[in-house]
Computed example of a mutant assay.
Amino acid sequence: RLTTRLDAAGEVRESVRGADDALRVRRGDLLAALRAPLEGRVEFLTGDSVATLDDDGDAVHVAFDSGDFRTYDLVIGAEGPHSNTRRLVFGPERPFHHYHGQVFAGFSLPNDFGLAHETVVWEAPGRRASLTAYGPGEPAHACLTLTREDPPYTVFGDPWAQRELVRGYFPEQVWQLPVLVREMWRAQDLHVDVVGEIRIRAWSHERVALVGDAAWGGSLLAGEGAGKALVGAYVLGEELGAGGPHGGAFARYEELLRGGAEKVPL
């Protein structure tokens, strides 16, 4: 696998060829692989969100934004670092979120660059743009990263304000930066977020538990978020499947994983 680094003027600083023996699974493919065995066995509710949670000690009564209403024995929040379940049960995100001083925008775009099995990285003080292509004929993936002292909380509810924010940090007419900014504006899968991590005192409360980045895990810089979430889900499932009160299963799950989670590099 070839990685090429460019300076702020778009000139090549170095090119390094390394082994490409890592297994990479796209998010959509992973989701399909996890979901397929559950079809017909589990009810999937899509395009909806939890509005309220009422844990009465015997069950959790859930109202959805759509107006639907369900009652469950347990609720597991696994919606990532901005978990709505965590907000409803544990309170607002800000006390739990530790910002690492960077904002990123990730998206896919047509691979019109002739890239295959390679990454090109443009770097300038406080900013970074990367372009990655895996196989020939497949879409390319871009990530624009910028350093910012304060997290831009005000733009996260507005996709167009997010685009404006990121575009303002990449005005140069060098390398492929104009193309990346233009494609970011068009991207249907754009994801803008801050580099940070969640640290929370307890991963469960009564009949609600948190898994993955909703509860713990390193930042984007540490990587492996999906793998860590799968490990957490597996351990929690094993403990619940062992029988006994759910509170004991929640406690054992946290006891087994918290030590390692707190040592995750940033």
Rank of each mutant, 00 (worst) to 15 (best):
G137Q: 12
G137P: 10
G137M: 10
G137I: 13
E138R: 12
A140S: 11
A140K: 09
H141A: 11
H141V: 14
A142Q: 09
A142W: 11
A142C: 14
C143R: 08
L144S: 04
L144G: 04
L144A: 04
T145G: 09
T145P: 04
L146W: 03
T147N: 11
T147E: 14
R148S: 09
R148D: 15
R148Y: 09
E149C: 07
D150F: 05
D150S: 14
P151M: 13
P151S: 09
P151K: 13
P152Y: 05
Y153T: 15
T154S: 15
T154Y: 03
V155P: 05
V155K: 05
V155T: 06
F156A: 10
G157V: 01
D158G: 09
D158T: 04
W160G: 08
A161C: 08
A161S: 14
R163H: 00
R163Y: 02
E164G: 11
E164R: 15
E164Y: 04
E164S: 03
L165Y: 05
V166C: 00
V166R: 03
R167K: 12
Y169W: 13
Y169G: 12
F170E: 13
P171I: 10
P171F: 10
Q173L: 02
V174D: 08
V174W: 10
V174T: 13
V174S: 07
W175T: 04
W175D: 01
Q176G: 00
Q176A: 08
L177G: 07
P178T: 00
L180Q: 08
L180E: 07
V181L: 05
V181S: 00
R182V: 03
R182Q: 14
M184I: 00
W185M: 14
R186G: 06
A187R: 03
Q188A: 13
